[in-house]
Amino acid sequence: MKKVMAILEKEFKSFFYSPLAYVVLALFTALTGVFFYLYLSSFVEASFMDAIRSQQYRQPPQKLNVNLMLIRPYFWNIALITLFTLPIVTMRLFSEEKKQGTVELLYTTPLSSTQIILGKFLAGLTLSAALLIPTMFFQGLLFVYGDPEFWPVVSGYIGLLLMGSAFISMGLFISTTTENQIIAAIGGFALALLLWIIGWGANFAGPSLAPLLEYVSIINHFEDFAQGVVDTSHLAYYLLFTFVGIYFSLKSVESVKWRA
């Protein structure tokens, strides 16, 4: 475990000593910030219109639901931005080691493949969690000036983290297969996008295929989390996905070693 932590720490250091970290953080914060602003503006406008209407018709104002109108769609947006950002985080995890030749260090020191992969996976997961911090700040503002329901926000973040861990395990696997970071990023992104939109095919697929496509689609499982429901079947999907990703990464690392 100490060695796993050492790898995690090293990944963090090289990530934050390079400009990449700041580009990713800035982009993620800017995009999620813009989306937050847009949703907030439209929500304020809707509340404003409602207030005017209630005065005109002399009815008590309807209380608009922040969770429904703002927080839930906002989570969807963060999820989408995650899809674009995480491949950039995962692309370097293994490809860079291969390119720099530092795999020779990792493979010839007393480290097991499991320790290497776990350290790298955890580093990716922690980074993806760090990306979410600014959005927590945005949503915190809602609690200062209003009173949204708290738990749906928590479950939304749990969902984002779980989906993030699925993306990261997949990105890590792709990163183990190539020494080219660009290929790793594009591959990770393409696969994530495919898993995202595959559920749309369910509308046109036959009755036997449709449930399968819906189940495989990575975003379908996020829906409940965004609504404030933590369903064990969706939890299981993400955990299984992550496990498979990590397992494949391990096998990939070991097979490369044997083929060399």
Binding site: K2, K3, K10, L105
Partner: peptide, 25 residues
């Protein structure tokens, strides 16, 4: 082991790098 191309992480400082190696060893 010192491979033909030294297995270094260009982003790290010498001290941090050697500490990392000590930890994984």
């Amino acid at each position: 082991y010192l491979p033909e191309n030294p297995p270094i992480y260009p982003d790290l400082e010498v001290n941090d790098y050697l500490k990392f190696v000590a930890k994984i060893k």
